[in-house]
């Protein structure tokens, strides 16, 4: 999976939760990622983060940090 495709998918999820009235939006995004993304996709996400996380929206970036921590 190309990094562009992965960041687009993560950003799409973040965009949805950005509009939700929840106390911790990053947590919701992280939970969604954990619920639906297979470990090797999360691994890729972690790698992408290590190299700067280019293209991830701020919320997606924050959530990615939590889920790959």
């Amino acid at each position: 999976m190309s990094p562009e495709k992965m960041t687009r998918m993560a950003n799409q999820i973040a965009t949805f939760f950005e509009s939700q009235p929840v106390s911790d939006q990053a947590e919701s995004v992280a939970a969604h990622l954990k619920e639906f993304w297979e470990p090797r996709m999360l691994e890729k996400l972690a790698k992408h983060l290590q190299s700067g996380g280019e293209g991830l929206s701020p919320l997606a970036l924050e959530a990615s940090k939590r889920v790959t921590a």
Binding site: M1, F36, E38
Partner: peptide, 18 residues
């Protein structure tokens, strides 16, 4: 206990070689 790959993810993973 971890979720598996969805169809599009399987195809991506195949192209990635895993």
């Amino acid at each position: 206990p971890e979720p598996g790959l969805r169809i599009p993810n399987m195809l991506d993973a195949a192209v990635d070689g895993t």
